[in-house]
């Protein structure tokens, strides 16, 4: 029987990343349609905590205790260990996230196993030809559906491709003991630095409140953050705001930043340049506050409030507050 695999990605504290819960949910539903087995693989110095979490989603989880995964860059270590669990199976389907770890795993695993890769999936269904993968290309202008020639392959999925949903009962956890030493060169992690104010990954957010040059300053972004807090959302930004040093690059949305697809995108003082638009135009609802009615964002926002954000935003906070309070 064929196999569908999820390679677990981990948070800094060793817990399971949310994207892997989504990947596991997807793997389970593909297994139900195909009759394939769905399994997870956890590679870590101490895989137990993440394995227990992953087993809530999948009937079977294979753990590899790998001490080298701790003090070294993780992805190539994980890819090499995962490749020996998966073996040389051209029909194997492997699902990982489309973020940095998932990409690194996908690239390395492809080189190790010869499996092809379909990237940035926004939807995956099972067909006679194996997984059929939808992705949004050319800045959201086109949706393509692709398949693997060999039926099997690696799929990187965007956050929120499916909603994570645990299985009825927990799966079995088994241990794999690698027979051989790692062959890929290790990259030492000399230091792990946590930065204050590091925000939740914006790709996963249901609501994004984003600020542009019009926000004007770091203090202006405090205002953006209060709207985000009031709506239960995350803070995003344009490159202009990132270049000005008002907000970290991790929050940048667009061609050279993140691609996001939240339910709501609230754009404050953002013109809507094409390089920004390609990162957010597939959002469910786009609302903009801009004092220029002719800004390009007027072309693709659902609602544009023409006005000074420093007047409209405080009023919005009051209006939102009186609603919930």
């Amino acid at each position: 029987m064929g196999a569908i695999w999820v390679i677990a990605e981990l948070n800094g504290d060793g817990s399971l990343a949310r994207i892997s819960m989504e990947a596991a949910t997807l793997a389970r539903s593909l297994a139900a349609s195909s009759g394939f087995d769905a399994s997870g693989i956890v590679v870590a110095a101490d895989p137990a905590p993440a394995a227990a979490e992953l087993a809530a989603y999948l009937p079977r989880v294979v753990t590899v205790s790998e001490p080298e995964a701790a003090g070294n860059a993780w992805a190539s270590v994980a890819a090499e260990r995962a490749s020996s669990v998966i073996g040389r199976d051209p029909a194997a389907v492997v699902i990982v996230g489309s973020g940095p770890d998932g990409r690194d795993i996908a690239g390395a695993l492809s080189a190790l196993t010869d499996l092809g890769i379909l990237v940035n999936a926004t939807g995956v269904a099972w067909t006679d030809a194996g997984p059929s993968v939808e992705m949004s290309v050319f800045g959201g202008k086109l949706i393509t559906t692709s398949t693997f020639s060999a039926r099997g392959g690696i799929v990187t999925i965007r956050p929120n491709t499916v909603a994570a949903e645990p299985a009825a009962g927990p799966g079995a956890i088994e241990r794999a003991s690698p027979a051989s030493a790692l062959t890929l060169p290790r990259v030492a992690v000399l230091e792990r630095v946590e930065e204050a104010g590091a925000a939740a990954p914006i790709e996963e957010a249901r609501i994004i409140v984003s600020g542009g040059r019009g926000v004007g300053s770091t203090q202006g972004f405090d205002l953006v953050a209060s709207v985000a807090a009031a709506l239960g959302g995350a803070v995003g930004a344009t490159r202009a705001a990132v270049d000005a040093g008002w907000i970290p690059y991790a929050q940048q949305i667009g061609q050279t930043g993140k691609i996001v697809k939240p339910e709501l995108y609230l754009a404050l003082g953002i013109s809507g340049a094409i390089q920004h638009k390609v990162g957010m135009q597939t959002a469910g609802t786009i609302v903009a506050i801009n004092r220029d009615p002719d800004a390009p964002i007027a072309e693709f926002a659902d609602l544009l409030v023409v006005g000074d954000l420093f007047e409209v935003v405080p009023a919005l906070l009051v209006a939102l507050g009186s609603r919930t309070g």
Partner: peptide, 30 residues
Amino acid sequence: STRVVETRKPPARGATTMVRGTAAEGADAI
């Protein structure tokens, strides 16, 4: 190892609603 089998255009976005007025009116509209 992969091939595109089908393409489609994403659903078109609806028209933009534009609101002008006081800050409070703008906020209420949102």
